[in-house]
Design a protein around this nucleic acid. Sequence first.
DNA 1: ATCCAGGTTCGGG
DNA 2: CCCGAACATGGA
Length: 297
Amino acid sequence: MNELIKITKPEIFNFQMCLKFLDRGYAECLYVVSNSSVKRLIRLTSGLALIEVYDDESNIIVKTSDKKLSSLDRKEIIAYVFDWFDLNRDIQAFYQLLLAHQQTKYFPERYHGLRLMGIVDLFEALCWCVIGQQINLTFAHKIKTRLVHKYGESEIVHGKTYYCFPKPEVLANLDRKELVAMQFSKQKINYVINIAQAFCQGQIDKTELLRLNKTEQMKKLTAIKGIGPWTANYVSMKCLRDMTCIAYGDTGLSSSLYKNFQTDKKPSHDVIDKVFEPYAGWESYLNFYLWRSLSPK
DNA sequence: ATCCAGGTTCGGG
DNA sequence: CCCGAACATGGA
């Protein structure tokens, strides 16, 4: 018997817009998007659970696979969806800022209700950054899929297999040869294993990081080999949900600034700061929307 | 063929 | 502090 969880939609929220972002053209192995819902396997304290998220007029609806949910399960599922879709945020002020500036005033209409879609799991977020470093995203998805299919937990529902991102414990003790075979570079292998070990040793933990201020978070993250300023900002934006992140040096951000703000093709740190200045407090959202504006429709 | 891709680290000036 | 090189391979 399926159980439905209903979440009232916040203001300025469009489920289809979020779905379109999730399904923007890359072969993603950690969730499955159809034209009206997204399914994904998540970890709860009690074990794995497949959730399907869709909507009606006024609610976001979460359907779970046919196991009986405890109240803790339900609480964790709701927390996950809130985090993933960034539901707990009033973005009206951001939209007003977008409208107030010539270069961004087309965003509220074109992307109305798009939320900053997150990566809830910190380890997954960090590994994804390392995987995506300096290679094209199509290839990045390809090697991520190999990793997830081989080391991630999975569950078969109605004949379809769904996957979770591998746990740090599994990746921390990997034979490097296996990753070479998946076309990871030696450098990426070192970084991934190193990050996995940092998790195993309790050196990083999402809950702990959330207690720190941003400067301390960045320091803690970049202390780990493989995590540079770009990754620290990306993760801070997509996982720790800091609203003031700018992905300096990001090639996508550069080309979006070139396109939307007529900056140089590779704007300097200072120029980027100037562009973002009027949107203070919403840098992460602006950065996200700027990325979004690069995808065709 | 050539250039670049959701960068990071390391060594050297 | 800033700069170039190495990493490593697919896609356009």
